[in-house]
Amino acid sequence: MKIVELSMVLKIIPKVLQIFLNFCLVLLSLILSFLLIKELTMFLKIFMTDGSSDYKMFIANILIFFLYFEFITMIVKYFKEEYHFPLRYFIYIGITAMIRLIIVEHDHPIDTLIYSLVILILIIGYFIMNITPLERPNRQK
Score class of each variant (00 low, 15 high):
62 I>T: 06
66 F>T: 04
108 H>N: 15
89 Y>E: 06
88 R>I: 11
2 K>T: 03
140 Q>P: 03
129 M>V: 04
59 I>W: 01
141 K>N: 12
73 T>F: 14
3 I>E: 15
85 F>P: 03
84 H>E: 11
63 L>N: 04
136 R>L: 13
44 L>G: 04
126 Y>P: 00
20 F>C: 11
95 I>F: 05
34 F>K: 08
16 V>M: 13
36 L>R: 02
72 I>Y: 01
27 L>W: 09
90 F>W: 09
39 E>R: 13
19 I>L: 12
63 L>Y: 06
135 E>C: 07
26 V>Q: 08
77 K>E: 13
49 T>H: 01
117 L>D: 05
84 H>I: 09
12 I>R: 13
123 I>K: 01
108 H>Q: 12
124 I>F: 15
13 I>G: 11
110 I>E: 12
85 F>H: 05
68 Y>T: 00
4 V>R: 14
13 I>C: 12
29 S>W: 01
11 K>Q: 13
128 I>V: 14
107 D>G: 15
59 I>P: 00
95 I>L: 02
102 I>E: 01
59 I>E: 02
24 C>L: 15
115 Y>F: 05
49 T>A: 02
71 F>L: 14
86 P>N: 09
71 F>S: 02
2 K>Y: 05
110 I>A: 09
60 A>W: 00
19 I>D: 07
51 G>R: 04
68 Y>K: 07
115 Y>H: 11
61 N>P: 02
32 L>T: 04
118 V>Y: 00
85 F>Q: 05
62 I>Q: 03
9 V>A: 13
96 T>Y: 04
8 M>A: 14
112 T>D: 06
75 I>D: 06
